[in-house]
């Protein structure tokens, strides 16, 4: 269910780091809790985001949930697909429906994040 090469937050975001670029998304568990997602409010290109701070939100018809940035850095790319196809967040949250790509400014922050096994255990217990 949860890819081994990703790291996770307790707020249900995932991050995949390649070089100094981190791809961020929401987890399968998060999309399941929210139900049918209708909109993702994402940071602007070039915005600076900070680990653990709100960087946007995802909305279903009856709920809204903040997205907390798993790492600090600068937003290099925003997933345009979600503007027209928010349903991808339900269909493929760990793949096609990534949210943003960040240039990481504090690589050591990743130590604070959960492994796939830890996250699996965390949501299992939640």
């Amino acid at each position: 269910m949860y890819p081994e090469n990703y790291r996770y937050t307790k707020e249900h975001e995932w991050v995949r780091v390649e070089g100094n670029i981190a791809t961020v998304g929401i987890t399968h568990h998060a999309q399941e809790e929210l139900g049918d997602i209708v909109y993702a409010d994402l940071p602007k290109l070039g915005a600076n985001v900070e680990q653990g701070k709100t960087m946007g939100s995802v909305e279903s018809v009856k709920a809204v949930s903040d997205i907390f940035s798993p790492l600090s850095g600068e937003v290099m790319e925003v997933n345009e697909l979600l503007a027209t196809k928010p349903e991808k967040l339900n269909e493929d949250p760990h793949g096609e429906a990534w949210l943003v790509k960040i240039r990481v400014t504090a690589p050591s922050e990743i130590e604070a994040l959960l492994s796939a096994a830890d996250y699996q255990a965390y949501v299992g217990a939640e």
């Binding site: 209708v38 909109y39 909305e59 279903s60 018809v61 009856k62 709920a63 809204v64």
Partner: peptide, 10 residues
Amino acid sequence: TLSAREQHIR
């Protein structure tokens, strides 16, 4: 629609 902007949800 777009109710997630509104006070009863947000």
